[in-house]
Design a protein around this nucleic acid. Structure first.
Length: 102
DNA sequence: GTGATGACGGAAA
DNA sequence: CTTTCCGCCATCA
């Protein structure tokens, strides 16, 4: 896994993970919020990240849909994250990372 | 330098 | 409401 390792260490990747860690239990944020302008990069970073201190389940798509299916859904429901059908209810569960990061 | 990749976003149909 | 399509961009080989 050489590529994935470097990915995890680049400055931007670290920022993505820093923001991801700032999302409180019971809330979610989006790939676009983790990396404004390059949401796909945030996805790559999350994909390569196996760090247990990163709450990966709290990162969802902008429309509230999930990238990791039922596994992710179970974890979020256990935290009390509200759903509307198959999607997270972003109106009440979205956490603004811009105001959470230092 | 070029081209491929991806846990995306959003506009259009 | 759902699906399709195209733009975006850091990173890597």
């Amino acid at each position: 896994m050489g590529a994935a390792d470097s990915l995890r260490q680049s400055p931007r990747a670290r920022e993505v993970l820093r923001r991801a860690r700032s999302v409180p239990e019971g809330f979610v944020t989006t790939y676009g919020d983790l990396c404004p302008g390059a949401p796909r990069f945030a996805g790559m970073v999350m994909s390569a990240c196996h760090d247990p201190t990163v709450p990966w389940q709290r990162i969802v798509r902008a429309d509230g849909s999930l990238a990791k299916g039922d596994r992710q859904r179970r974890l979020l429901e256990a935290e009390g994250v509200p759903f509307r059908g198959a999607r997270v209810d972003m109106r009440v569960a979205w956490a603004d990372v811009e105001s959470l990061i230092d």
